[in-house]
Amino acid sequence: MKRNGFCNAVLSLIIACLVSFGNTAYAKRIIQKGDATNLITEKMLSDILEKNRTYCTKGIVADYIPELGKMDARAIAFSVVKPNGEVISVGDTQKKFTIQSISKIISLMVAVEEKGEKEIFDRMGYYGTDKPFNHYANLETQGKPLNPMMNAGAILTTALIDGEGDIPLQKILDMVRYITKDDTVTFSETVYMSEKETGHRNRGIFYLLKNNGLVEGEEDKLDNYFKQCSIEVTSEHLAKIGYFFANQCVRFDGDTKYKSSEMSKLIQSQMLIAGMYESSGEYARTVGLPSKSGVGGGIVVSVPGRIGIGTFSPSLDPQGNSVAGYHMILDLVNQLDLSLFK
């Protein structure tokens, strides 16, 4: 094991040197002879993080939710779960932030586990979009949400999970705790209250869904959505979530309780076509991997059959995606030739 680790470290250094000197073609030929993700080291991630740290000042911290506006724009973290389940993290790895829209892939899994894919998607589409995450005009024109990654579809997804009161939230929390193997994961009461007090557009979406006969019940169902967005995580948690969906819903430590290739394909396909909102098409062209962002500054990435990636930097671009997070992911993808599209 020690010898293999030393060899991987040397090979990783050689590849890094080739990339730094512009000989990416030769580096990619070396990578293609084996799984490049085994070569990821702490130094590799640290170098990428430091290279992209300046992007922390290139965007704006989300302030339309007042509590999110208090986040430190200089915070940055980068985590990877390798094929063998090893976790490597650099930067502000202990910094907690709210999961926000990344929670949508968890609630979708819970809902489909309970009701089946057909029942969920009879009420919403599989479609991508060129519209922002809070767009809802299609509820008037088509009568149902475009996909479960936009707010309208995500609010509906959570409302369809069985149980009264906060039982649906507890199911989502339990799934996050299971995937990350961390029973301490919970939600931020202050962020939840901030979202609830300012979430008038989401409240309007809930009542449009109700008006269209897609959901029943009262606003406690919407409260569960606000609370799931307020779940606090770290970049390591996100990398473990990315690994889980990349590997047929097998946990990073090998636990196969929820193993399902069909669930894995469903979640990753939605991440790929709509996980970065109206930037999803461009992101698929540049990064080429299933990914999901959140306005708390996180991005989760699944490299199918291989690794999970988690990044954190709260400074966002106009579409609500982390600027530094995107560039860190792009550099790792280019360095190790990870894109699905060859």
Rank of each mutant, 00 (worst) to 15 (best):
P66C: 03
G254Y: 10
E113C: 00
S280G: 13
T186V: 05
L39E: 03
M276N: 13
Y26W: 06
L340N: 09
I267Y: 12
D72M: 09
V295F: 11
C17Y: 08
M71Y: 04
E114S: 03
D166V: 10
T286I: 12
P304G: 07
S279Q: 14
C249N: 09
V215F: 07
S188M: 10
K257Q: 15
Q270D: 00
I30K: 00
E197A: 15
Y258V: 01
S261W: 02
R285H: 12
G199M: 07
C229I: 02
T190M: 12
L272R: 09
M71G: 08
Y258P: 13
G204N: 11
N134M: 02
P304I: 02
L209P: 15
N23P: 00
I102K: 04
P304D: 04
I40G: 02
G288P: 12
V185L: 13
D63V: 01
P318C: 08
M109I: 02
I267T: 14
L214I: 14
E113M: 09
G69D: 06
V61S: 13
G288F: 07
P318W: 04
K131H: 08
D331K: 00
G242F: 12
V87G: 00
T141G: 00
S302A: 14
I105P: 02
G242Y: 11
R177D: 15
G5M: 12
Q248S: 14
A154T: 04
E42F: 06
K82H: 01
N84Y: 01
Q170G: 00
L332K: 02
S260E: 08
S230C: 05
G22K: 06
I48H: 03
V176Q: 11
V112H: 05
S101W: 07
D35S: 11
L39A: 03
G165C: 00
T234V: 11
A75F: 09
S302Y: 12
V233W: 04
K95R: 15
S79E: 10
G298I: 06
E236L: 01
N38H: 12
P314M: 04
A111Y: 08
S322K: 09
S235R: 04
L169S: 08
I31K: 01
K144A: 13
L214Q: 13
E140N: 10
I167M: 11
G296N: 06
L338N: 01
K257N: 06
G325H: 12
L156S: 06
I267N: 04
L156P: 04
H327K: 11
